[in-house]
């Protein structure tokens, strides 16, 4: 009898193992929507504008389904897929961002006076003095706040239920373009933390697809004092330290300083800029993507060029060196170019 019992226990353990594996493998679905006191969209937007999150640390997941064409020389994070970003801030401008990859890690540290960029693969550190209001990459807090401020005038803003992001209850703020806006985007959803009123997740949905084209949000977040050692950087032994080129505020590599012109406003804004002159004859600067082979050829009264389209935006690079880009269909771009 004991033999039978143990055989049963053995098969039970094996089945439990399979079930456990399934629980690990199958991602937990969207949790139950937390119950939160109702809030008006205006109130929510106003509180987001005023909030300051204080010190925090967490992990941000960037889920990119933009469908950007593979650009030679561009960082891997631009391609479709998910990548993690670890981020810490002391709430007063000092911060650390690390971009882990399978091969190594890129680390950005700002200690308030100096900003460091460290690349573990070639062991180089680039140092530059901090200018006011540096934008940290992939910080959902800032990008979402900026998006709200820019899009409020031309959108319908509403609160659409609640969500749980990084284990925190949040309101879902939805910005839908006004019907007159000619854009590729369907809506932008921003999950706002119920307590701290900080944007926790930014989701961009394009027309014609139920899945987000782009999503950036915290998967793990703790508010509270962070280890001060995180906000200092000492180049480790064996590191090549270089200073960033001077005058970074003025975009040094742009000859003849042609300012980009902005056509339209709100969702169907088109930015028309002039590509750096002499690009074709000279060797392009290292790291700059080579755009000349991308996209499909298009032409019209405005000239001819190449159209690069993604899920949420399109761009036209004309043969005479102009670039028009925006979250709009091709026609809006060509109208902007024809001006």
């Amino acid at each position: 009898m004991r033999t039978k019992l143990w055989a049963r226990i053995g098969s039970g353990v094996a089945v439990a193992g399979v079930v456990g594996l399934g629980l690990v493998a199958i991602p937990a679905g969207a949790g139950a929507q937390p119950e939160l006191p109702p809030v008006s969209a205006e109130e929510l937007v106003a509180s987001v504008g005023q909030t300051s999150p204080g010190p925090f640390g967490g992990t941000v997941e960037v889920d990119n389904a933009l469908g950007l064409p593979a650009i030679p020389g561009a960082p891997a994070q631009l391609a479709n897929g998910t990548s993690d970003v670890r981020i810490w801030s002391d709430g007063t401008g000092r911060g650390r961002v690390s971009l882990p990859s399978a091969q190594g890690e890129r680390t950005l540290v700002s200690d308030g006076t100096t900003a460091w960029a460290y690349d573990s693969e070639d062991r180089t550190a680039v140092r530059k003095p901090v200018t006011a209001h540096e934008v940290q990459p992939a910080d959902p807090t800032r990008s979402a706040t900026d998006a709200i401020a820019q899009l409020r005038q031309t959108s319908t803003v509403s609160v659409d239920g609640t969500a749980e992001v990084a284990g925190r209850p949040a309101y879902e703020l939805v910005l839908t373009p006004n019907p007159t806006e000619r854009t590729l985007l369907r809506e932008v959803r921003i999950a706002v933390d119920a307590e701290k009123r900080v944007p926790l997740r930014l989701t961009v949905l394009a027309n014609g697809s139920p899945d987000p084209a782009f999503e950036v949000g915290f998967t793990d977040l703790t508010f509270g004092p962070q280890d001060p050692a995180l906000f200092t950087f000492t180049p480790p032994p064996g590191t090549t330290v270089t200073d960033a080129p001077e005058g970074t505020g003025e975009k040094p590599q742009r000859p003849e300083g042609v300012q980009p012109t902005v056509v339209g406003d709100g969702w169907d804004t088109v930015v028309v800029a002039r590509a750096p002159q002499g690009d074709r004859s000279q060797q392009r600067p290292e790291g700059a993507p080579d755009l000349s082979q991308l996209g499909t050829p298009v032409s019209g009264p405005w000239g001819s060029g190449r159209l690069i389209s993604t899920a949420v935006a399109s761009a036209i690079v004309t043969d005479d060196g102009r670039i028009a880009a925006g979250a709009v269909p091709e026609q809006v771009l060509t109208e902007a170019l024809a001006r």
């Binding site: 033999t3 039978k4 143990w6 055989a7 226990i9 053995g10 098969s11 039970g12 353990v13 094996a14 089945v15 439990a16 193992g17 399979v18 456990g20 594996l21 690990v24």
Partner: peptide, 16 residues
Amino acid sequence: CYAAIGLGITVWRMQR
């Protein structure tokens, strides 16, 4: 989980 599956099958098989 894999270890549980492996050991479970081993125990089951050895009993029989």
